[in-house]
């Protein structure tokens, strides 16, 4: 095991992927608790698809991928949030429309410029090779911001997640915190997307929270457990993908799925006893 880990660590790209992945998993898990509980899970999924479209556009225009993707996805986060809050349009349907449209536009742009090739597949399903040194810096920056804001606003995020009307009524600007959560999610997704893949990144947001909720009963426990689980599953996913030469993003998702199944089974047994 130790041999394997030292071997893993001897590759610079693996080290980069580990740093970025651990930080992104941590942020995604923290934000995911609120998103899942507020029934906003689909926003994470929608944002990653928009991110895919933005990456394709950046590639076609020969611009740096993140410079295009971050602002585009941030704007999309705003829009998706407004749609979800507006009860006249059914939020889930609108999100599905936006996400499939961005995917379609992205695919057309790619096939028009470079043709469907390995790059496309990498964007959709992720590649561990995609992380450059600047990504490492960016992900450190983003995760410091996310974790700092999350800790500082923890009590407000809890209140807004549990009961938005009450929190609004007692004078907290709930929209501000919703927007904050959406923007932080957008940044996390953009940073993690090229490694995990546009189609798979939302699992980092949804799985840890959902898994933790099987067993843990207070908000604090769920948040802490999500953060820990998310990092463990990510590292395990990388190791598995290295041993069996599986795609990285998919391995991480499958490990998350297994953990979820395990936790669900335990909670089922606990209920029977």
């Amino acid at each position: 095991m130790i041999e394997l880990l030292t071997e893993l660590m001897s590759y610079a790209f693996v080290v980069r992927a580990l740093i970025v992945g651990v930080l992104v998993s941590l942020c995604a898990a923290l934000l995911g608790v609120s998103l899942v509980l507020k029934r906003y899970s689909m926003i994470g999924d929608g944002l990653s698809h928009v991110g895919f479209g933005a990456l394709a556009l950046a590639m076609a225009l020969n611009l740096s991928p993140l410079e295009v993707a971050i602002p585009v996805v941030a704007v999309a986060a705003f829009v998706l949030l407004r749609i979800s809050e507006n009860s006249r349009i059914k939020g889930d349907a609108a999100i599905a429309l936006i996400s499939s449209s961005s995917l379609a536009i992205g695919v057309i742009i790619i096939s028009y410029t470079s043709g469907m090739n390995a790059d496309t597949s990498n964007y959709m399903f992720g590649s561990i090779l995609a992380m450059s040194e600047s990504d490492v810096f960016l992900s450190v920056g983003v995760s410091v911001v996310v974790i700092l804001l999350y800790v500082l606003f923890y009590n407000k995020i809890f209140a807004v997640t549990f009961d938005e009307s009450f929190t609004r009524a007692t004078g907290t600007n709930a929209s501000r915190y919703n927007t904050l959560i959406a923007l932080l999610t957008a940044m996390t997704i953009v940073v993690g997307m090229r490694m995990m893949g546009a189609l798979l990144i939302s699992s980092l947001i949804i799985f840890p929270a959902l898994t933790s909720m099987r067993l843990f009963k207070t908000f604090k426990q769920v948040v802490i457990s999500s953060a820990i689980l998310s990092v463990i599953c990510f590292v395990a996913g990388i190791v598995v993908s290295f041993i069996f030469s599986f795609p990285t993003g998919a391995s991480v998702v499958v490990i998350n799925l297994l953990t979820f199944t395990l936790f669900s089974t335990i909670s089922l047994f606990k209920k029977k006893i």
Partner: peptide, 9 residues
């Protein structure tokens, strides 16, 4: 609906 299965002490 959100509150019914909300994990919070």
């Amino acid at each position: 609906v959100i509150q019914r299965d909300f994990p919070a002490s």
